[in-house]
Design a protein around this nucleic acid. Sequence first.
RNA 1: GGGCCGUUAGCUCAAUUGGUAGAGCUGCGGACUUUUAAUCCGUAGGUUCUGGGUUCGAGCCCCAGGCGGCCCA
Length: 502
Amino acid sequence: MNDERVPDSPTDDDLPEQMRVRREKRARLLAAGVDPYPVEVPRTHTLAQVRASYSELAPDTATGDRVAVTGRVMFIRNTGKLCFATLREGDGTELQAMLSLNKVGEDALSAWKADVDLGDHVFVAGEVITSRRGELSVLADEWRLAAKSLRPLPVAHKELAEETRIRQRYVDLILRQQARETVRNRAAVVRSLRESFHSRGFTEVETPMLQTMHGGATARPFATHSNALDAELFLRIAPELYLKRCVVGGLEKVFEINRNFRNEGSDSSHSPEFAMLEYYEAYATYDSNAVMTRELIQEAALAAFGSLTVTLADGTDYDLSGEWTTLTMYGSLSDALGEEVTPETPVDVLRKHADAHGAELDPKLGHGKLIEELWEHLVGNDLYAPTFVRDFPIETSPLTRQHRSRPGVAEKWDLYVRGFELATGYSELVDPVVERERLEDQARLGAAGDDEAMQLDEDFLRALEYGMPPSGGVGMGVDRLLMALTGLGIRETILFPQVRPE
RNA sequence: GGGCCGUUAGCUCAAUUGGUAGAGCUGCGGACUUUUAAUCCGUAGGUUCUGGGUUCGAGCCCCAGGCGGCCCA
């Protein structure tokens, strides 16, 4: 042990009383030869196993069976010669421990009262019984500390402040069953996605997160530097251009579930670091991949929640069953405006519509952006039931194939759920000459100061020049899928969201 | 980026017009062999986010900043 203090580390005198008391208990135990952090304890059963084995005991039953269990002390009730403690283990299962003077003896009982605090991990061995009130319990003949807690837990029956829940997620997980369930639900959803892909013959790949060019989406990237290459690198904003290289190479059904990074602020539906699912399939189109995306989501709902109707955090039910509504962007916007708009509608007419509906839009926006912003304002934000919106303006969809019959629009859909964008799907643009023109437009925007514009990725174009089969592709935010299925904000679906340093 | 709101004990929150900063739980001491947020008695715990200012006097008013939330862009 090292007694030298780091200059900034607090001395015991600075600590609140409750923390000082626990540190003193730890020191006292060590001095008495008791290890407050033993390397192991001889546990024979989990709390869940005990609960499962003795589910139907009458009150005041003695089974004669001895078990040795562990758990975190969540509540303590002492009555002189008889002590009760509620133990909890990882999955939230609780079991009562009882320490009676005539079973453990005077020394062990007074040590229990003196040494054990709320939050400590303890080991308790004894007979499985039920109390007079019928509570399943372990009546200890032996107990021991498994790990001493040096910080007082927040009071268990008041809701923890949201900031503390996020900054100290470990405390949130200790206290809130819902916090633990959210983590498991997310794992179940991601697992279901993978299984859905595997059952359809897709291959999971991992493509670069450190990229020399940022592309595949329009967003500001995080920039970093490689010392070895002496080159600027970017944390990826999307895996799209690499997944398409895979399709060129003959991996005709590929998917990736991994992190993307966008150098932007966070709010209730955005996080600078977020999990993204993208998948590409040769000979698919935006029609077929819309069907598959719906199936993926429905299969995830069934796998994680057992139903196509999920219960959201506010208690309301949300129906994901059946086929979902499909709109076109221009059609639904025309209906909302009460006047026909098309890809030919001039910018000044669109701007008048924006003014008339109180949408303050950047005067530099062109036709495509104006349409999308107006649509989001007037239609998208109010789409509650799952809805596919199809046929976006071509100029804001640089990686998407032009519509096979309708000029000016792209074969692209967005999936909206409860007013936010959950996924997007394309019939992919595979003509390398047209793709080069689109990326050159993007590069011009970038040169003009648009720091969200894509860069011109020559290697990607070279790959396309070898010939990419007609393909459909989809991107879906995994955090947002959890939001859609649970009604939680994005910072609840992410275990450790970004927070400003304390 | 703009506007509004919040920031007080370990946790959740009070504090009247600017006049001694309180409660519950937690903690500490004590009683209690069937409790379930145990109960009862006693008791401790504060740089009121930070820094300036006004005032006889500031948790409260003013200025600047930090952190957080909501709304808008």
